[in-house]
Design a binder for these strands. Structure first.
Lengths: 254, 254
DNA sequence: GTCATCTCCGTACGTCGTACGAAGTAGAAG
DNA sequence: CTTCTACTTCGTACGACGTACGGAGATGAC
């Protein structure tokens, strides 16, 4: 067996490849917990308070261990986060894709991603993960591609279409999360912030002219009762993207 | 003048509203630098090494001050970042929008955002900023809306279309940045990582079946010589989105 | 000349990830 | 049964972080 450049890989696949060449019994005391339990506790903390609030010390306290003991379960914080991603994604059972409804399949790919990122907003803070990596990520990619198999796209376009849908859905969830985050940190809703700063903003912006931004911003503010409405952005954007994809398919299959 | 709930606001607009009610002369020694110089130095650090590497101590050293002296220029790190965003955006002169080429205008809105985020990837890490906020942000929003004025969209749809284009462009830049980041941190390119882990991955994934992911992944890998190709994703996705937007306009104006 | 106010900055506190080494436990080897 | 050795657990410590606090020195207002 060659060296593993990435220490996360074997850990990620620990359930599908039970033990590489490790001895079946280990000396010393049994570990009081399993890696899964540690990762689950970490997911719980990150779900509630964000990835920034997930410290090794806090996680250790949550599972009843000393901080340094965590390092016998997981090589370090980065590797823990990688495990969290795959384990969190594995919690959602991927829904069946409607066989004769391409539009529905495309929307389902996007909406599934949207729901998962909403449930675990810290997924958005994990950037450095190589694709595929874990078993649940691989399952998901396979599922996403199956929504587009046999519709007339070549392999590269299938990959790009999946990226487009998934990236868009993530981006909407990101905007939504940013609003909630700002609200939590400032203690004010968008509307309250706007009202509290209206006078200053008005004074300050009076020195310049923003005819469109003023008109559109006011219309949006009244319609949304906030500065933005991710739900409507999701609906609008997804419709345009799916339209564009279907039109592309039509043009190719003509 | 009422209280300013947001301490960044007056600072952000300091150039368009020179001084609110402050005395024209200040006691004590002159500041050795200007806020602009401090923010420029911060942008330089963040451009080179990311927002995480921008510490108050490092910025202070870069401009030749003690760490705590920065707090006489800027209320805190968060406020500094907000100033950085507006100042970085202000560096790009917004290009003229082609009057009789709607597709070109939409693409230009997206590509301008893409270029700016590529130049300042740390913009992607700034989430909590309320929209509009600064003068350059406001200028930009006005410019983005002007690309869509008079084409048959209502105000809400104009806002949503801008969000769609800008969000998509940012997302592509994010993917590209994530690849570069991973490369920098691991010291390996995507391809090298893949090759180094190929054996482990092959062994581990042999326990499951990934027909589509295997086929598509291999095709993508060969075509891209990497796990992904943000340039092609940009081209493909932008074409689909603009198609979808134009189709929506056609349907509305029919 | 006095004083209020400003800039500048050293120190300190509580946070973080984690390197290191000690203490105790349990299977393996004799 | 004893000894060895690998293992888990964890306390301490280091250098980073943002920034609260207070002191020293400078400058304009009176």
């Amino acid at each position: 067996m060659p060296a593993d450049p990435d220490p996360s890989l074997r850990l990620l696949w620990r359930h599908v490849v039970p033990s590489g060449d490790a001895p079946t019994t280990r000396r010393g005391p049994q570990q009081r917990l399993s890696v899964d339990e540690v990762v689950d506790a970490a997911i719980e903390i990150a779900d509630r308070d964000g990835l920034g609030a997930l410290s090794m010390r806090r996680l250790a306290a949550a599972v009843g261990l000393g901080a340094m003991t965590l390092y016998t379960y997981v090589p370090g914080r980065n590797e823990l986060v990688v495990l969290m991603v795959d384990q969190a994604l594995g919690r959602t059972e991927l829904p069946a894709l409607p066989a004769d409804d391409l539009r529905g399949r495309l929307e389902l790919v996007a909406l599934t991603q949207y729901a998962d990122v909403r449930a675990h907003p810290w997924l958005l803070d994990v950037s450095g993960v190589r694709p595929w990596l874990g078993p649940h990520m691989a399952d998901r990619y396979e599922w996403q591609l199956s929504a587009l198999e046999g519709v007339g796209l070549d392999d590269l376009e299938m990959d790009q279409a999946v990226s487009l849908l998934v990236g868009f859905a993530s981006n909407i969830a990101r905007a939504e999360h940013a609003v909630r985050q700002a609200q939590r940190e400032s203690g004010m809703t968008d509307l309250e912030w706007w009202q509290a700063n209206a006078e200053t903003l008005g004074e300050v912006m009076a020195h310049r002219s923003y005819p469109l931004a003023g008109r559109v911003g006011q219309a949006a503010g009244e319609a949304y009762q906030a500065a933005s409405d991710p739900g409507r952005e999701l609906e609008f954007g997804l419709a345009r993207i799916v339209d564009g994809l279907l039109a592309h398919l039509d043009a190719k299959n003509r």
